[in-house]
Simulated assay, not measured.
Amino acid sequence: MMSSVIKEIKYIFSQKSLINQFTKREILNRYKGSYLGIIWSFVTPLMMLTIYTFVFSVIFQARWDTNGETSKVEFAFILFTGLFVFNVFSEVVSQAPNLIIANSNYVKKVVFPLEILPIVALGSALFQALISYLILLVAMLILTGTFYWTALLFPIIILPLLLISLGLAWFLASLGVYIRDVGQIVSIVIPALMFMSPIFYPISSIPKEFQFIYSLNPITYIVEDMRRAIIWGQLPHWGAVIIELLIGLTISILGYIWFKKTRKGFADVL
């Protein structure tokens, strides 16, 4: 089993050049034909940060702590961190059910590695997340004069989320070929999951009888640790990171196995 997994990992790495090529094309195609082009990658998160901050801190008078000591600037940072972390997951998973269908011309090409398509989607989402991460660091430095070295732990904290997203993407990309309703179901689940994660509110505000539900949501710990490291300069909960990493590895391996087992029937369905 382990030797088979290692063999598949080596195979995926052997496709590195093709993955990079497709990821670059995916990023450029996103803004193809627009006047600002890739600059939208910077403009979009800034606009969303402004809108969400205005709605929740000005209109709803939301505060992150019960004492109301959180400034609007800090509230914006807290909100923005949760959003860009969750957006990695939502972008990959929401695209997944249609990945193979949208690239059906590659299905009958025996030599084309279809399993790289979810990786390409993940790479594109990660590119956007990195831009948002850099925008957050620069904004914190300019507006509050703070930069914590713990922010550099970003790759370690987000790694479990990448593995979970990739595993689900492999599973949903395959399932979407056989059951076209999967895309519609995912479009409903994603917004529900966003509001079931501590994106717009602290986990401490959740009634105790419902907190066990949030403890089952792996995104909860990743969002909390990202805020802890970037905004407050604290170390993540390493125990949670390790557990999340194991969960991510399990989901990604199972998702990949499912994809490899079911891809033989893609040509017949499409």
Rank of each mutant, 00 (worst) to 15 (best):
E26F: 04
S94L: 07
G37C: 08
A102W: 02
V138M: 14
P202L: 07
G123K: 01
G167M: 01
S4D: 08
S71Q: 08
P207Y: 00
T66P: 00
Q15L: 02
Y256M: 13
A102E: 06
L166T: 00
I142E: 10
T144C: 07
L117W: 02
Q15G: 00
L161H: 08
I142R: 04
A229T: 12
A62L: 01
F259N: 08
R25F: 12
L83P: 05
I12V: 13
L79N: 10
Y256A: 09
Q21K: 07
L136M: 15
A173G: 14
G37Q: 11
V85F: 09
A151Y: 00
I59W: 07
A96G: 08
A151H: 01
A125F: 12
F212Q: 06
G123Y: 05
A76N: 09
L216G: 09
V93G: 14
I9S: 12
L153Q: 12
Q128S: 14
A267H: 01
I230T: 10
L114H: 09
V73E: 14
W238K: 01
I156K: 14
P202Q: 02
S104N: 03
W170L: 00
S41L: 04
M194K: 03
G68F: 04
L117K: 12
A125I: 03
S174N: 01
T23R: 13
I19L: 11
E26W: 14
V88G: 11
S132P: 02
R227Q: 13
T81R: 12
P198S: 05
T144G: 06
S71G: 14
P191G: 12
E69R: 07
V223P: 13
L254E: 08
W170N: 11
F200H: 11
M196W: 03
T144I: 15
Q95E: 03
Q21I: 11
K72G: 14
S41V: 08
Y11W: 03
I78M: 11
F210Y: 12
Q184E: 10
L216F: 13
K72T: 06
M226N: 01
A267C: 01
S34L: 01
I101Y: 09
I38N: 12
L130R: 01
I39V: 13
S132K: 06
K24D: 09
S94A: 15
A121S: 15
T44Y: 06
A240W: 08
V138F: 12
Q61I: 00
T23G: 10
L136S: 05
A96Q: 02
L130W: 04
S14T: 00
Q95D: 04
L126F: 15
W258S: 09
D225Q: 04
N98D: 11
M194N: 02
I203Q: 08
L162Y: 04
L126D: 10
K72E: 03
S57C: 04
L216Q: 12
Y133Q: 14
A102Y: 00
K16F: 14
G239R: 02
A151M: 00
L152C: 09
F127A: 11
L270K: 03
